[in-house]
């Protein structure tokens, strides 16, 4: 995944497109962001992940120049958004949480209008087709479905041909199918060479989409890294669960150097261990002519990493569905 960032790095060399250092922001006495630092490289999908109220939106608002920071430095494409707003706004496309357009404004009107704000806009008709809104060109904003409104919002974020797209809680309130379609959309945005800064509180979304991410909790960065790297940091242990086709002596398994523990629940066996656990296990079983039925390898998810790193559970009220059988999080959730 890190190679994608390198490949798309044609436009501006190796300089990070966003640099945030020791960002601090408070509203009156309430400190929204204590101390946040991270850099975003050109061409990557960078996630800001954390529970509701962690300071994610405030952080990106300071990067957009929508809010004035109380401390720290912010550089977006080399400019300070607090003092050089225009330069930042020309090159950064934004999809805001809960933004609306006037009820009676039509889709094509909105795109035509927003494209006129930028010095070098994209062809909004092409954009409309790419986002599957071509047949909605004359539909008033009020008559669009939630998913269509979100896609229009993305189109408006891209219409100025931005170098960076900031997407804030893009999939909140979407049904599972719409969410998956939107994930594809985010990958398509990156494929255009646009750097994506993605704000989300969905673990699964961050794990699936982000090249790197910053885990934010209570206004501070808890960890920065790749999703796999963050997971590996907190979980070196693997778990294999199966049902043996014939009676099995636990000592056969505990004798293996890779195995650290064996637990039985009914006729199910849960083996924990390290290294090449799965291979060691299946070889040992094969030697006894035992088949592992319903074999399942369980890996830690980003959610586990979050819990381990912050010591508490992320917001459970807005969890995406877990129906995707290919996702590690889904496997984990079924245990």
């Amino acid at each position: 995944m890190s190679t994608a960032a390198a490949q798309a790095g044609g436009k501006g060399g190796d300089m990070p497109v966003i640099e945030i250092e020791n960002l601090h922001k408070r509203y009156g006495r309430h400190v929204a962001v204590h101390d946040v630092s991270f850099t975003v490289e050109r061409g990557e999908i960078f996630g800001i992940l954390g529970p509701n109220g962690a300071g994610k939106t405030t952080t990106v608002e300071c990067a957009q120049g929508l809010r004035t920071r109380d401390g720290g430095t912010v550089r977006v494409l080399g400019s300070d958004p607090a003092t050089d707003r225009l330069a930042v706004r020309r090159k950064v496309g934004v999809q805001l949480q809960e933004t609306q357009l006037p009820d009676r404004m039509r889709v094509a009107e909105a795109l035509d209008l927003y494209s006129s704000f930028y010095p070098d806009p994209a062809d909004w008709r092409t954009l409309l087709a790419e986002l599957g809104l071509a047949d909605k060109a004359d539909t008033p904003f009020k008559k669009l479905s939630g998913g269509q409104k979100q896609r229009l919002s993305v189109a408006l974020a891209l219409v100025g041909n931005p170098e960076i797209a900031i997407l804030d809680e893009l999939t909140t309130g979407m049904d599972p199918q719409a969410r998956r379609d939107t994930w594809q959309l985010v990958e398509d945005i990156r494929a255009r060479g646009v750097t994506v800064l993605l704000v989300t509180h969905f673990m699964e979304e961050a794990e699936r989409l982000c090249d790197r991410l910053a885990l934010i909790d209570a206004g501070r960065v808890v960890a920065v890294g790749t999703p796999a790297g963050l997971v590996a940091e907190v979980d070196a242990e693997q778990r294999v669960r199966f049902r043996p086709s014939a009676p099995l002596d636990d000592r056969l398994l505990t004798g293996l150097p890779e195995v650290t523990g064996v637990t039985r629940t009914g006729n199910q066996v849960l083996v924990t261990g390290t290294g090449n656990l799965l291979h060691a296990l299946t070889s040992a079983l094969a030697a006894q002519r035992i088949t592992a039925v319903d074999l399942r390898v369980e890996q830690a998810s980003l959610e586990d990493a979050f819990v381990a790193l912050t010591g508490r559970h992320p917001d459970r009220s807005h969890r995406p569905d877990r129906a995707d059988p290919t996702s590690a999080a889904a496997q984990r959730a079924r245990q």
Binding site: R89, T99, F117, L156
Partner: peptide
Amino acid sequence: ATYRDKGVLRRLATTPV
């Protein structure tokens, strides 16, 4: 007031205009 309430003004604040 509707434009402010609905975030239309805020959305425009992120554009060059």
